[in-house]
Amino acid sequence: MLLDVVIAACAAFAALGVMLICFKALRAKPPRWLGPAVAAVAVVAVTATLRYQWAGRMEAMLPKEMVVVERLATRSPFEPWSYVKPVVTTLVLADKGTARTNSAHADLVLINVLIVRRADDTLVTRHLVDCAGRREAVFPADAPFTSDGLPEDLVWAADTPPELITTACTVRPSAGIGSSSRDESHMHKIKAVI
């Protein structure tokens, strides 16, 4: 965010410099209102460009284990151009490296989902993906378990991003492969569900 402010300020000064050079070449004096207007237009233009480029820059920096499963765009009256082309401000990522399965529930995959927001903290949640049912649910941290080792009261999402299902169900790793000690203890805790 600070970098965006610095870039916008530099753009404003650069635009003012170009304006002054042009007027000097013409041997004319610019009106007093033109300087602030040029600076404001430069700041708005650069800020809009940076906001549109944010998602692409983030995706380019992602490790190969991270897959973008959804891009959430917004419109705002403070950015009228966003009604023509919405600005992507949130990326939903699936971390293939965290995918876990268990032979007792072969159609289920446990996978970390990250919600990356522009100028905000990243949220990490665990999701249970049902490959046979083409659905997913947020995996509750301290949920009680049923007799078959699955969490009780799972709330299956009605609008699961298809790419999340595809990513989770394509990985299908063996149980415990590549898991950290923290993941292993969590897996043990959930009765080897996934």
Rank of each mutant, 00 (worst) to 15 (best):
M1S: 02
L2A: 14
L3N: 07
L3G: 14
L3I: 11
D4S: 01
V5P: 14
V6L: 10
I7H: 02
A9R: 12
A9P: 09
C10A: 15
C10W: 15
C10V: 15
C10E: 14
C10Q: 11
C10M: 15
A14G: 08
A15Y: 02
M19N: 01
C22M: 12
F23C: 09
A25Q: 04
A25F: 07
A25W: 06
L26Y: 07
A28S: 02
K29C: 08
P31Y: 09
W33G: 10
W33H: 05
P36L: 05
A37N: 06
V38G: 08
V38I: 10
V44L: 15
A48T: 00
T49D: 03
L50P: 03
Y52S: 02
Y52G: 08
Q53Y: 04
Q53N: 01
Q53A: 04
G56R: 05
R57L: 01
R57W: 02
M58F: 03
E59F: 01
M61E: 03
L62W: 03
V67P: 00
V68G: 00
V68Y: 01
L72Q: 05
A73V: 13
A73Y: 12
S76E: 07
F78G: 13
F78T: 08
E79G: 09
W81D: 01
S82Q: 00
Y83D: 08
V84D: 07
V84E: 05
V84A: 14
V87C: 12
T89E: 10
V92T: 06
A94I: 08
D95K: 00
D95T: 06
G97D: 02
R100Y: 08
R100D: 14
T101N: 04
S103E: 13
S103A: 07
A106G: 02
D107T: 03
L108F: 14
V109P: 00
I111M: 07
I111C: 03
N112M: 09
V113T: 13
L114C: 11
R117Y: 10
R117V: 13
R118M: 14
R118V: 13
A119Y: 12
T122I: 10
H127K: 07
D130Y: 01
R135F: 13
E136A: 01
V138T: 11
F139C: 09
F139I: 10
F139T: 10
A141N: 11
D142K: 11
P144L: 10
S147F: 03
P151A: 06
E152D: 02
D153I: 11
V155R: 10
V155E: 09
V155C: 12
V155I: 15
W156S: 10
A158G: 14
A158I: 15
P161D: 03
P162K: 00
E163W: 06
I165M: 15
T167N: 02
T167I: 06
A168I: 15
T170V: 00
R172G: 07
P173T: 12
S174E: 13
A175D: 02
G176F: 12
G176Q: 07
I177L: 12
S180W: 06
S181Y: 13
S181D: 13
S181T: 12
E184A: 12
E184W: 08
M187F: 01
I190Y: 07
I190T: 15
A192W: 15
A192V: 12
V193A: 14
V193H: 01
